[in-house]
Computed example of a mutant assay.
Amino acid sequence: MKKTVIWIIVAAFILLIGYRVVQRIAQRRASGLIEEKRSVPVRVMEVTRASIREILSFTGDIKGKEQVNVYSEVPGRIRSYAVREGQWVKKDGLLATVDRGITGLEFEPAKIRSPIGGIVGRVFLDIGDAVAPQVPVALVVRMNKVEVAINVVERDIPKVKTGLQASIKVDAYPDMSFEGKVTMMSPVVDPISRTSRAEITVDNRKGFLKPGMFARVDLVVREEKNTVVVPADAVLGRIERYVFVVEQGKAVRKPVSLGIRENNRVQVIEGLDASDTLVVVGQRVVDDGEEVTIVVE
């Protein structure tokens, strides 16, 4: 009987100690003294090499490569037109005649001729309207090539050079892209706008592009090939840029130096190697050295 009582007391004592230990651990966890390990789910990609381009975007107006306003050499009134808008006129072809009639005098009608071959883009006066040497009668445009004029801000002037490839888009043909080249870069800067004027020549033998159209222009000013390129969202930090990679099941923070950015991709000049396992989802919630679980889609 005594032995039974002793065993009961010992068992109760052990249970009491166990309860106290469990209670102490729970209290320490609650107070943050014991941190439970966690594994953060992330998605990753293997870093690879690719090509990336630096693109500058501009807007501008399309005009004919050659276009001239045609004037009458004498005053008078428009007597007749030999062409209509949209018609082709050859060089020195007749555009219009001018009645030079002065009271008491008679003159042969004066002839207005086109100095270039091209399309009659505009006729500015109606028959019977007064005309003078300073008043344009018609606009003639040579449209097999067109130009887009753009204004380049000071910081980008060193990047824009003649010969650069350009991609042009217009609202009339949203699914089409027209290729051109920078053919002129002004050597001066406008003191008011602080921009320099550049011209892009575009082949227009099919006639899709019309003078006066609004154009959006992308210039490829630099291209890097076989370089480390990653999603821009994978890069964190505003001043000191860094990424997370996975090594031996843990997130490792790596500082990086960046280069060209193209849309949602960015070039990494230093800090990453091809074949590194880059965190692309979950990088904002992991800490350096924290265990991670790679989630496969």
Rank of each mutant, 00 (worst) to 15 (best):
K3A: 12
T4D: 07
T4L: 14
V5R: 07
V5S: 10
W7Y: 13
I8V: 14
I8P: 09
A11T: 09
A12K: 11
I14H: 08
I17L: 12
R20Y: 09
V21P: 05
V22T: 14
R24T: 15
I25H: 08
A26M: 13
Q27W: 07
R29L: 15
L33P: 01
K37P: 08
S39V: 13
S39P: 03
V44L: 03
A50L: 10
I52W: 05
E54Q: 11
L56H: 13
S57F: 12
S57K: 07
G60M: 01
G64P: 00
Q67P: 02
Q67I: 07
E73G: 14
G76S: 03
I78P: 01
R79N: 10
S80N: 09
R84I: 08
E85V: 12
G86W: 04
Q87T: 10
K90P: 14
A96V: 00
T97N: 05
G104A: 09
L105E: 15
F107V: 10
E108T: 13
A110D: 00
I112C: 06
R113T: 15
S114V: 07
G117C: 06
G117P: 04
G121A: 11
R122T: 04
V123G: 02
F124R: 00
I127D: 06
G128P: 00
G128Q: 06
D129M: 09
A130F: 09
A132L: 07
A132H: 11
A132V: 07
Q134G: 10
V135K: 07
P136T: 07
L139E: 13
L139G: 09
K145P: 02
V146G: 00
A149Q: 11
A149R: 12
I157P: 00
I157L: 08
K159E: 14
L164H: 00
L164E: 02
A166W: 02
A166C: 05
S167R: 11
I168N: 02
A172N: 08
D175L: 12
M176Y: 12
K181Q: 13
V182H: 04
M184Y: 15
M185P: 02
V188S: 15
P191D: 08
S193W: 06
R194H: 14
R197C: 02
I200E: 01
D203R: 06
F208K: 05
L209N: 02
P211S: 10
F214G: 11
F214S: 11
A215I: 06
A215E: 03
R216N: 13
R222S: 15
E223I: 14
V228D: 04
V228R: 02
V228N: 03
V229E: 01
V235K: 05
V235G: 01
L236C: 05
G237L: 04
G237K: 06
F244R: 01
V246Q: 00
G249R: 01
K254D: 05
P255I: 06
S257N: 15
L258E: 01
G259E: 05
G259P: 02
I260R: 04
R261Q: 14
E262W: 08
E262H: 09
N264H: 12
V266C: 04
V268S: 01
E270V: 15
L272V: 08
A274R: 11
S275R: 14
D276T: 04
V281R: 08
G282W: 10
G282T: 06
Q283C: 01
E291L: 10
V295M: 11
V295E: 12
V296S: 11
